[in-house]
Every structure is written in C-alpha cells, then in structure tokens.
Design a protein around this nucleic acid. Structure first.
Length: 595
RNA sequence: GGUCUUGUAGCUCAACUGGAUAGAGCAACUGCCUUCUAAGCAGUAGGUUUCAGGUUCGAGUCCUGACAGGAUCACCA
C-alpha cells in the first residue's frame, strides 16, 4: 500500500474531527514536496479556506499536529504559507525499497483484459524511409511497449501503402530510365532504388512542364498534360484493371522495396504482428457507404456523390464516395477500421500518424461513431509533430530529406569515434565493440526523438542535435554500465545483497531521494499510457540516472564500514539498474553492461 | 479568409494537468580522477513564460483579443 493512500484517509478524518467537514478521498491529493523544503509530501490548504474558517497557516498547523498524534507514519511537519509539508518515518522508505526490490514484476502491471491495436510506420513503397519515419516508428513501437507494460494485449500493425499514383511514378521512371537495373546490379538497397526513380520522375516531369509552358501552355495545363504524368495515370488504370505486365513490374519493385524495408526495420529494432496492404484494402468501405445511407448518416448530392454532414459537430460536409462510385481516402479508411475490428476485436485502436492528418481522423472517428460502431470511443489518433531541419521542411521528391539508413549509420559511426576517443574499449572483442557502438548510436537517436512530447513539432539539427552527454540516451546507458560494474565487483568479493535489510535504520538524504524517485516508476508507466507519451518515460529515466549519479558521487559503496549499509547500497544500485533497463526497454533502447 | 495548433534561458526541451522562489541539458565560466567507469559530480551565470486584458486565494497552465510560426480546409493520399 502506497504511503499516499495511507495518509489521505488520515487527512479526511482530520477534516471531520478538527473542522467538522466531510471531504471525499478523491478530492484530497498530495503532491511531492519541493526539494527546497523539508518533507516528502505536501498538502495544499488554500482550497479549504472557507471550510477551516481560519488562516491557512493556522489550519495547516492544526492538521499537522493532528496527523502526528494519530499516526506513527508522520514524524514531522512544517507549514509554509498554506503548504503543509509532511515528513515520513524513515522506516517507511526502507519498507518501500524492500517492496520494490523484491517485486519480480517490476515495470509490468497486471493484465487488464483489454486489447489494443497500434498501427504505425505505414510507409509508401515508392521511396526509402527518412527521419520523419524514424519518429513515427520509434513512437509507435514504444507506445506499444508502454501499453503492454500497462497490462494491455497489444497488436502492432503496419498498413503498407503499396499502390497508387506515387508508385506508378517510380515505375514509369524506371521503365524509361532504369535499363533493367536491379538492387544487385546497382548495389542499391531496394527501397533506395525505387526512391531514386521517384526523384528522377519528378525531375523529368518538371522538365516536361517547363517545355510545355515554353510552348504556350499555362502552368496549370502543363502540370496536367505532361506526358510522364499521363503515363503514370494510365499505368494506374491498367494496374486497377489487373494488367499482367504492369502488375508484374509492380510486384517486382515492391519486392525490392520490402527487402530494403526489412533491413531498415531490423536496424531500427521495430517489428509488427500484422501487415495490411492497401492493394488489398483500397476497395473496402463501399458497403459502409450503403449502410450509412440506409441509416441516414450519409446523403447523396445531385451528381450522385455521397456525403456526410458534420456541421453539427463543428466540422464541414465531407465527401465519402465519388459520383462515379469510386473510393476516396476516407472510404477505405472506414473499411479498414471495420476490418481491423473484425480481425482482432480491439478495445482501442491507435493510429500513429502525423498531425497533418488531424482533420482527416477527426472526420473518420466522428463518422464511425455516428454509424454506431461499438468501438467508436476506442479510436485514437496519436498525432505527432513533424521533424524539421534547420533548412526547413523535408521533401522526398526534392531529395532534401535525412535518410533513415544514413542517419542510423552516422549515429553508430559517431558512437564508435566517441568511444575510441574516450579509450573505453579495452578488453572488448571486435564483435563486442561493434555491438556497443550500435547500442549507443541507436540509443542516442531513439532517446533524442522520444524525449520530446510527441504532439510537438521538433527541430533536428544534424550537426548539433545528437549529443552523448547530459540529457541523452548514452548518459542513461552509462549509468547502467556503472551499476553493472558495481554488481560484478559485489559478486566477485561475495557481498550478499539479496536480503531483507532488517537492521538498516538510517538513510542518507540521497538514498532516500533515490528511493522516492524509483518508487515513481509505476506511476510514470501509467501516465505514459494515459498520454500515449514515451517522453514521460524518457524524462523519468533521466531523473533516475541523475539521482543515481548523485548518490554514486556522494556515497562510497565498497569503502563503507557497516556491512549492512554496504549491502544495501549494492541492492539500491541493483534496483536502479533494473528500473533503467526496464524503462529503456519501453523506449526500445538496449543498455550495455560495460561501456 | 475559416478551422486546428504552437510560442518558456543564446540553443534544445521540462514543469506531476490551477499551487510555493518557472526547472534540466547543451553552449560559457570555476572546482573535483592515487579511492566503485570523469559519457560523471559540485558550483557560477543566464527569464517581464511573445504582447495586452480577464477569471481567483493563486495563471507558463483556463478565457478573450493582438502578434508571430506551422498544419489543414480536393470528387489527392
């Protein structure tokens, strides 16, 4: 039982006995006492000015005295303005530590019987992944891990956008300029090969446009009439008509791309339980349009197109099916929504998609609710901000992107250089060293992208963004390695730190602070799931690591004369390492035992 | 133009969802390796939280307006 849940009922009783006033347990909240004041928990008196009918200082003092007299737990209090700061019996903290230390399910809450589907990544198959996708993938993977830790059954899904005009563009360019090139013959990863022709398409397309403009067409006309574009559109029609030649080329190019993606996903350390392909799903949703018409949720306009009116919900009218009966984006999304539910029967379905699609998902979810879907309230758009470069927005077509594969490799290379500079690889085999560089490089990158609130746009400066000191992945990894080193030594000299510490009666201030921080882990896991925010975990782990390093600098472990204290400090270190390892796993980051 | 969103130290980000003197990290400066890993620790300096009003015991946080960025408003995806 947490200390808060022991103190709050006491406060409730206090209000009744001292002030003759009933308060509910829910409205009573404690907050951690700020560092500059004495105490561990703070109760704010201001909201109860009318109830206590006395100055907040006086009321706080009365309540404080009451708590001390009624409970062993509270050992001291002070009142600053209207803030009642409570100090807690030192043994309680040792009890808390013991509870955490013996918990075999650290970082894993009991199952809640709910199923959640997390869709993330969802790449286009006409180009390789870039920095923006890294944020998406790391976020999606981490949120899935966080939900698992909260007791959900999680299904990770990837809806691959493998068809459409953009793929046809790559294909058209490949036919014209590819000369039968393959990943093997070119030495390019398959996704990069496809991306190369996507860029070529854009270049040649622009040439044609300016030529047409030179021949007297307006820019708008030229954009529509450029032969390459017409060719791509024709190719899309053929694809939809299942033209054997086109389909075979399409399959070939997609296969190359998937090989490339596989390699990238492996490097990223992300995975999926279920792949959906838009080539399978793009025709879905038309029956839902029928259903919507029958239910009176949708209506037809004169030209036979189908619409939904969301003006009552503060949005606009929105097209759901074209006049010629063909689908738009949202048509298939309605269909896919049902498909996922039929496949898995989820309680929640999370879409990890950039905030440029806020409006789209707003519309989609409102429609599904209007249609009376039982899962309607479980739909959630995890909308994340774009990653900007100092030079502005990234554009695939113009090649101004930070490529995911390149960036990951750079990170790993930088980690190698940095580690060698510090002379920290003595005794490492070549393989161990390579492994370490990868762990550190990827840790730095993932932590960098996950430590900021997903909702906010963020700036990535390739030259300056990635550090290895301060609030970074490697700093936390370093803290873990330090502890691992201590545990090796403890085992080597035979310290018994798997015990109850019954004789321990006194804690240093840093030790107590560290326990308090470690005790927050479960709370943070819950909060991270509520907010769908890995940043909560990242910020927390930084706190843990900082707190530990302070302890490490202030308290000597193996020079401690008192064997009980010595063993306790090893145990405290061990718990810290477990917490760091567990938390970093939620971010998809590994921690080394030596670095 | 309508809607949504963001604005916090020179830079990158926090602030327990309305609580105390707004905190970290980089960058700058000062100390600390003969002792468990200095990718560390301790310290100095850096702020009118874009601006103007309002709500209340109390506002970076909520409301209104202005200014500045961004997204979106297709029979595109």
């Amino acid at each position: 039982m947490s200390l808060e849940s022991q103190i709050i009922p006491l406060i409730q009783k206090g209000f009744k006995e001292i002030f003759d006033h009933e308060v509910s347990l829910e409205e009573l909240a404690l907050q951690p006492t700020r560092k500059e004041f004495e105490g561990s928990f703070t109760f704010v008196m201001f909201p109860y000015l009318k109830v206590t009918k006395m100055a907040p200082e006086a009321a706080g003092t009365k309540l404080g005295e009451y708590l001390i007299s009624k409970s062993e737990l509270i050992t001291a209090f002070n009142v600053v303005k209207g803030f009642l700061n409570l100090s807690v019996n030192e043994n309680s903290w040792i009890d808390i530590f013991r509870e955490l230390y013996t918990n075999t399910n650290l970082g894993q809450l009991p199952t809640n019987g709910q199923k959640v589907l997390v869709e993330y990544s969802s790449p286009n198959t006409n180009k390789p992944l870039h920095l923006g996708h890294l944020r998406n993938n790391f976020l999606g993977y981490s949120v899935a891990e966080i939900l698992k830790a909260n007791g959900y059954k999680v299904i990770k899904a990837n809806l691959v956008n493998d068809r459409g005009i953009h793929i046809c563009k790559s294909m058209v360019a490949y036919l014209h300029y590819g000369k039968g090139e393959t990943p093997t013959s070119s030495g390019l990863k398959g996704d990069h090969l496809a991306g190369k022709y996507y860029v070529i398409f854009d270049k040649e397309y622009k040439k044609q446009i300016s030529q047409l403009i030179g021949e007297g067409q307006s820019e708008e006309e030229a954009k529509k009439n450029a032969p390459l574009l017409l060719e791509a559109q024709e190719m899309l029609r053929k694809w939809e008509a299942n033209d054997a030649e086109i389909v075979s080329l399409w399959k070939q190019m997609n296969e190359w791309v998937y090989e490339g993606f596989d390699a990238t996903y492996t490097k990223m350390g992300v995975d999926f339980d279920k792949f959906y392909y838009e080539s399978d799903t793009y025709l879905l949703g038309k029956d839902i349009v029928e259903e919507g018409l029958e239910k009176g949720v949708f209506f037809k306009k004169d030209n036979n197109s189908t619409w939904v009116d969301l003006s009552a919900e503060g949005l606009d009218e929105k097209l759901v099916l074209r006049g010629d009966g063909t689908s738009v984006y949202i048509t298939q999304d309605m269909g896919t929504c049902d498909l996922k539910f039929n496949d898995f029967g989820f309680d929640k379905s999370i879409y990890v998609v950039g905030n440029e699609q806020d409006y789209h998902f707003d519309v989609l979810f409102k429609i599904m609710k209007k249609l009376g879907r039982p899962y309607g309230d479980g739909l959630y758009h995890l909308s994340y901000g774009m990653v900007d470069l100092p030079t502005g927005k990234m554009k695939s077509r113009e090649g101004t992107v930070v490529d995911a594969d390149d960036l990951m490799q750079e990170m790993i290379d930088t980690a190698e250089t940095h580690t060698k500079e510090l002379g920290k690889i003595e005794g490492f085999s070549e393989e161990e060293a390579k492994n370490l560089y990868e762990i550190l490089g990827m840790g730095a990158l993932k932590y960098f992208l996950l430590k900021v609130d997903p909702k906010k746009r963020m700036l990535f400066n390739p030259k300056e963004s990635i550090e290895f000191q301060g609030n970074t992945g490697p700093f936390i990894q370093y803290s873990h390695a330090r502890i691992a080193s201590i545990l090796r030594k403890a085992d080597q000299i035979g310290v018994d730190y798997q015990k109850g510490f019954e004789n321990l009666s006194k804690l240093e201030a840093v030790e107590r602070d560290l326990i308090i921080t470690l005790n927050d882990y479960e709370k943070k896991i819950k909060q991270a799931a509520e907010d769908f925010s890995p940043a909560t975990i990242a910020q927390y782990l930084f706190e843990v690591a900082k707190e530990y390093n302070r302890f490490y600098a202030e308290c000597s472990i193996f020079n401690e004369a008192d064997q009980e204290v010595l063993a306790f400090r090893v145990a405290l270190s061990s718990l810290t390492a477990k917490t760091i390892k567990s938390g970093m796993k939620l971010l998809g980051i590994s921690v080394p035992d030596r670095m």
